[in-house]
Amino acid sequence: MKKLTVIIILIMGILMASICNFDEVKEIFELNIRNTSVESKVINKDNKYIKADLKIPKLIIANKDIENTLNKKFESDIINFYNNSYKEAQTYLDDFPDAENKFVISSDYEVKKSNDKILSMLIKYYKYSGGAHGSYYYVPYNVDLTSGTVFILKDIFNEDSNYQQVISDEIKKQIKQLNKEQNLPEDSTQLYAFNKIEESQKFYVQDDSIVIFFDLYDIAPYVAGIPEFSINKEVLNNLLNEKYKKIIFKI
């Protein structure tokens, strides 16, 4: 009887401890199901016209409707890149059968910021069709994961704000510093010929900044690559739309 009493007391103690820790257990479970992750799907093609190595992002989030919609878009965009490149290669190599090389293309991606509310990711495209070097460009996907909306730069700012001018002035300031580091006059356009950003300027989010970037040849020669300019949230704080201020920077 004494042993039975001890066992009952032990069981009651375990049950009470479980009840007391229920909120903690629930919190951990909710945290896990809210985690955002990205896996890869790889497609390799090698035929008469083109060699392709395509890495396609596969988003995994709690909301499966949003997940499926976004994953279809990522894959569709990359397959369209392949199909267009294939047609270009086919036309060129049929017209010039003595050309030495088939086309070479690839896609890759880089996640810049990811949590339960936002995904900021670049899909990177490369194509070599002959000549001294290939070409490449990045496509940003800045996604509000609470709604599945892919937003552009102007969406994150108040309608009456002068965000274009503020960001453009900050980029010009950074270009002056880059010129100085290259022993060029501050206002030189030898490396960077920049005037003003567009409403739909390419960007991604990283840490506490948005990073504005430009395609090859947009504002600089090929040797400069993809020019990027990081703009800290403190510069933009008073211009940001309240919704995106919370989603992007949790302000």
Rank of each mutant, 00 (worst) to 15 (best):
Q177M: 13
Q177Y: 14
L178P: 02
L178R: 08
N179M: 03
K180A: 11
K180H: 13
K180T: 08
E181H: 13
E181M: 14
E181A: 13
E181R: 15
Q182P: 05
N183I: 05
N183Y: 13
L184R: 03
P185M: 02
P185A: 01
E186Y: 01
E186R: 02
D187P: 01
S188C: 01
T189P: 03
T189V: 08
T189I: 07
T189K: 13
Q190L: 13
Q190E: 15
Q190Y: 13
Y192L: 05
Y192E: 02
A193T: 12
A193I: 07
F194P: 07
N195A: 13
N195H: 14
N195K: 15
N195W: 11
K196Q: 15
I197P: 07
I197M: 08
I197T: 05
I197Q: 03
I197C: 06
E198G: 09
E198A: 14
E198C: 06
E198F: 10
E199P: 09
E199I: 06
E199V: 05
E199R: 09
E199F: 11
S200N: 15
S200H: 13
Q201F: 06
Q201L: 01
Q201A: 07
K202V: 02
K202P: 00
K202C: 01
F203R: 05
F203H: 06
F203N: 03
F203M: 07
F203W: 09
Y204E: 06
Y204H: 11
V205S: 11
V205L: 10
V205G: 08
V205Y: 08
V205N: 09
Q206Y: 09
Q206V: 10
Q206N: 09
Q206T: 08
D207F: 12
D207R: 13
D207N: 15
D208P: 06
I210K: 13
V211E: 12
V211C: 12
I212K: 02
I212N: 04
I212C: 07
F213Y: 15
F213C: 03
